[in-house]
Design a binder for these strands. Structure first.
Lengths: 280, 280
DNA sequence: TTGCTCCTCACGTCACGTGAGGTGGC
DNA sequence: TTGCTCCTCACGTCACGTGAGGTGGC
């Protein structure tokens, strides 16, 4: 390294704004190794040529990129692969920024309005033939996974001979909520004959008695509908096991903006009480 | 709790979108206690009246607010105090968002331009009388602390009889960089007699031989100047112990926008080499 | 030569997640 | 009655920070 001189860990720390403890840690995990380590004393020596790499690491850490991902970026086989990894991370970051802004807005709304009480109604849903994609999904990837799956189902419908018999929808297992990871089924109700291929399957969504409410607005507020439903069901009827359903009456794929979204949330119940309040 | 019904931990999880593990944790640390716990079985029972509190907790956790801070918000003595705590957190969040956007921009710049080589010059700084505020500061609070301290010094100058003899400046101890916490001294050079009061003191900033470079642009890129300086010093002269100085030639308090900022960074060196390369 | 820098353990932190192994409720 | 829900440890995770106790470099 022609013009490269050596720096002690303290000098390298001041030069890169990484703490000494962080530098030792990056050495331990092999993310940023000093060019030289004194065999007798263990003293680390960094080259001035390592300063730019350290700066890149610091930037990514400021953005909370995990060390493993940073390593992947730094070790990318070629510049093109490296740049792809970086760009995709930046895109995820910018999405996360939007997410945070949405959460801030939603928190403000929650603290001001408190949320007008949502109307809850009962519905007996019949057995429903549908095309579906199912997978074990975790909480953080759910929205993205669902968007992709529903897109795929929509494409399959427009290509084939079958007819859509209802809006985009999904089934969420209890584990998905309770462990923030579990089975999710994206589905679209269909009429008539369907040829399935790829990851798609033809399923019968079982009949169910449901308590239903409609949420208007972005998904970041969807928990309000769940709160209203869970509360209503606990206070008025008996809940039953089984997945919770969502129907995407107006969704982003319709080109609607977040405030205009309409999502139906359906909570499975034991039996719909009759009008007189008696139960058979 | 008149109309309030009880929910199992699983039902409460589905209603609030908090995982069962998280709910148990919030019980353990006393952040969100179930209204009732079965003595024999240990089963937790939550009231429907607790759903809104859970939603607030979830929002704050989505924003990465620490549990202790959430507890403080929830236990605030009165609504006004609670709202103040929330608003101040939201303001910090929005600042952090700007920070992140700045980091993204700076990373992009770093990956594209790489940064044109910065010019480094030598300077023999004389002993400088100054008014100063010193404190043990940690990394994350440094920018805010420094802004406040320099403001205070500016106010003291405009009120008194002394004359400013140089731009706003600061001294940073090695520990500040190496451990991300250490002594920082905010100072303004002055001429003539000065009456000091409050947290201010009158100090003589010691004379020093320095390697100096000027950074143009926002503070998020300042590490580039440090990289250039640390590298230059390692390759050309001997570094010396002692604090690093920053001079805020054009600062935000001048009403300049971030891209127009000019900050001088000064790295202490053992001895300025003479023009012929010989050392006395 | 002195003290200052650097070293290596070992353990702590924060907010849960991950099983293991077991009991109670409908 | 069966299995499903819920329980409590104990330990792991991630990216370092916090000392303690000690040696080497200028």
């Amino acid at each position: 390294v022609a013009m490269s001189a050596l720096l002690t860990i303290g000098e390298f720390s001041r030069t890169t704004h990484l703490s000494v403890k962080a530098l030792r840690h990056y050495d331990d995990v092999g993310l940023l190794r000093p060019v030289e380590v004194d065999v007798a004393s263990g003293y680390r020596r960094y080259a001035t040529a390592q300063v730019p790499v350290a700066h890149v690491i610091r930037r990514f850490r400021d953005l909370d990129m995990p060390l493993e991902q940073i390593r992947a970026v730094l070790e990318a086989p070629d510049i093109a692969a490296r740049d792809r990894a970086i760009v995709s991370h930046l895109e995820r970051m910018e999405q996360a920024l939007e997410q945070t802004q949405a959460t801030v807005a939603s928190l403000r709304a929650l603290l001001e309005g408190g949320g007008a009480a949502l109307a809850v109604e009962y519905r007996a849903a019949p057995l429903t033939p549908a095309i579906a994609i199912r997978d074990h999904v975790d909480w953080e990837h759910a929205e993205q996974w669902l968007g992709a799956a529903l897109n795929e189902l929509g494409d399959a419908l427009s290509g084939g001979a079958s007819i859509r018999a209802g809006p985009d929808a999904a089934l969420f297992s209890p584990e998905f909520f309770e462990q923030h990871a579990g089975e999710v089924v994206a589905f679209v109700p269909v009429d008539g004959e369907v040829a399935v291929a790829g990851g798609l399957e033809l399923v019968d969504i079982p009949a169910a008695e449901l308590a239903v409410t409609v949420h208007r607005g972005p998904f970041s507020d969807l928990d309000q509908a769940y709160g209203a439903l869970g509360t209503y069901v606990a206070e008025h009827v008996l809940a039953s096991a089984g997945p919770i359903r969502e129907h995407y009456l107006v969704s982003e794929s319709d080109g609607a903006d977040p405030a205009a979204l309409r999502t139906e949330v359906c909570w499975p119940i034991r039996r719909i009480p009759d009008a007189r309040g008696a139960q058979l």
